[in-house]
Design a protein around this nucleic acid. Structure first.
Lengths: 393, 393
DNA sequence: TCACTATGTGGTAACGATTCCACGCCAGGA
DNA sequence: TCCTGGCGTGGAATCGTTACCACATAGTGA
């Protein structure tokens, strides 16, 4: 009985005393079926536990209801949140998510293209690594949405954070607080994420009439340990640095631990602004001021865009959606040392801990509130919305 | 050309001047094909960009190469790590992961069962919510592996952390350090996770000759905010508490922030041990001593177990794999306030706080310790006066 | 020479659903 | 009476593969 053959539409037809055509119409709701017959068919299907075979169905109709998601690193909370956003929206729309991790590896990514091509998925959402991945997918007739970064602007849709805006917001904040020796720790500037954030950093400087000291832009790669040593070297070399802008959550982690290990006070001696809002940033003391990208929102928009593209396949123009980041003020930014010394040098942070997570977003935030009342599901680890009072404003 | 029909096996056959049968054999490697012909076929397939249709193939052979994963909350780093472990192993074995999030919701979970049944996946890995989910899947002829917790011990395979061991290890550590008023913050005790950790907590007490004060066991549910108020209430009611054991990462987060907001020094006034090792625990100061479950390892083992089950479908006996947790000593545990010296002498044979991470595994630890490099704990061993202070030196 | 096997190839029936088409019935209008 | 059109149903082709079978050829041993 365990190994009994799975029920097919023919079994239902036999049980209900009709033809398979009628069963199909009754269950799908397309075409004419007498009410009484439909009821009988549905009952029979229920009775014998019939579930239509998606393979057969897909083969026949030539399309399927699941889309591929090709992501860099699920263990990184940014990508996990992105994937979570994608999945949620996909599920609402009746699609499923086929998730493949590529670990940031080009070969794996290209292999995944074949996987998705074989599966005949109608579309794929990808955080691209190789510049060829988009083209390859498109050549297989698969619709593509690039998420988080874009490697192929030629035709494919994309949903990305406004990296230049974010980089600029963060830098402007520091400049406003009086900093001028602001180090930028960035992985690299080939990808649009890095390039955009770097551009924003430059823009903010220019607009404030400051010139960018290129020596303060440190390329730290993707490995946390290496990043730490790069940051350490920079700190050793340039004692005049008063603020750090870490261009993603991994780099922020490296910067924060490096500063902590060196017993460098934040923000007393060095201010820190991060990029990506991940849980630890609101757990540490001082809490880390950061640019929240709203990864879940990027994920949802990516899914939306792909779905609309699937539904209207002959739309030709490529669309780019920009999700505006917002600045989450917390406690890791202060005035530059040597500047104003109003700041108390006491043990405990002077900021009263925020009791409620009310969002005090200072930036023009086009994106809907970070959390958008999503408390529906329990236990989203780490609320992204606990904007605290700016330290010593 | 964008909308050109996808290449089929017939196109390849025509291009290579052979029959579809021969193409199939040439590409799959089953059956006889002349070397020269095989080469020609492969070249032709390459040339026209042919990728076999997985739907048709699955339909024909009656099985597919992707397994379902049904998980509670991808945004929670514990589950993200679990999923990441599963996906990695699956991919190595040539399977793909169909991921569905259920947000801890029973209805969603049960709906997902139908999804997987329709897709005809051969197996599913699930972190179960409803007690019926396993049975429903099995009734559809789908192999099931329960991960992290088990709701159905009757027949299905499972891979879980050794929760009793973990709960006991954590409690023993606190008792050894002289604590006797140890509060346990736990979501609930219906699931095996909670029940096991609670049991371990009791065992440790009994073995030390202590009786469990039931008033110190607080059930805090799954909502972080609610958990905070439960913890707050407990702290108000029982001023004699010297240590907290928080039974998962969300509860640990609630406990940590509640303590920080109340300016209660860790571990000076209250010691804290967490469960689940997630990134923020090694970012905060003091770093949090915790029971690492090795979620990625649980994921990998789940995938292994499912794959072996798929390959040997008539194996009848259900297998349970226990992944031993390990205790990661960091800085949130100290002697109880008040009677540190005396009490310590009488109870504990001077357990020195280990200066190196990954030391001090009290259980036979089958799992490799992936945590090893996470944090070089700095010697706050002697001075318990090290409050929840920011880096303010 | 005759089996007999190993090798190589093509035809064709599945797999399980959907959907077009043909057919039958019945009511209503000309 | 005959047509028309809305319902309702079943037959059968079809989607792209695979695998079974038949058949062909060549080489081997008796």
């Amino acid at each position: 009985m365990q190994e009994r053959r799975r029920a097919t539409i023919a079994d239902v037809a036999a049980a209900a005393g009709v033809s398979t055509s009628t069963v199909s119409r009754a269950l799908s709701g397309h075409g004419y079926v007498a009410r009484s017959v439909a009821a009988r068919v549905i009952a029979a299907a229920e009775e014998i536990g019939y579930v239509p075979d998606a393979n057969a169905r897909n083969l026949r109709v030539g399309s399927r209801r699941d889309v591929g998601v090709l992501i860099s690193d699920l263990a990184n909370p940014f990508y996990a949140e992105l994937a979570s956003g994608i999945e949620g929206r996909l599920r609402e729309a009746g699609y499923h998510m086929l998730l493949v991790n590529n670990g940031g590896d080009q070969a794996e990514e290209l292999a995944a293209v074949n996987t998705f091509a074989a599966l005949r998925v109608p579309g794929v959402i990808v955080t691209p690594v190789s510049e060829h991945v988009v083209g390859k997918l498109v050549r297989h007739g698969i619709h593509v949405v690039q998420a988080d970064r874009v490697v192929d602007a030629s035709g494919a849709d994309a949903v990305v954070g406004a990296n230049d805006v974010g980089g600029r917001m963060a830098t402007e904040l520091l400049i406003r607080r009086g900093h001028s020796k602001i180090a930028l720790i960035i992985d690299e500037a080939e990808w649009t994420t890095g390039a955009g954030r770097l551009a924003g950093y430059r823009t903010a400087h220019h607009e404030a009439g400051l010139t960018v000291d290129e020596d303060l832009v440190a390329f730290a790669g993707f490995d946390v340990d290496r990043a730490r040593s790069v940051i350490g070297a920079l700190l050793d070399r340039r004692q005049d640095i008063t603020a750090l802008l870490a261009a993603n959550n991994l780099l922020a982690q490296a910067a924060y631990t490096e500063l902590a290990d060196r017993r460098i006070s934040i923000p007393g001696r060095v201010s820190l602004v991060a990029y990506d809002d991940v849980p630890w940033m609101s757990m540490v003391r001082p809490r880390v001021t950061t640019v929240a990208q709203h990864a879940d929102e990027i994920g949802r928009r990516s899914a939306d865009l792909l779905i609309s593209r699937l539904q209207d396949a002959n739309r030709r123009t490529a669309v780019s959606v920009l999700v505006n980041p917002s600045l989450v003020h917390r406690e890791s930014v202060g005035a530059p040392f040597g500047g104003s010394r109003r700041r108390r040098r006491s043990v405990a942070p002077a900021t009263p801990a925020p009791a409620t997570p009310s969002a005090g977003l200072s930036a023009p935030d086009a994106a809907p509130g970070p959390v958008a009342a999503s408390a529906a599901s329990r236990g989203t680890a780490g609320s992204t919305a606990d904007a605290a009072a700016p330290a010593g404003a």
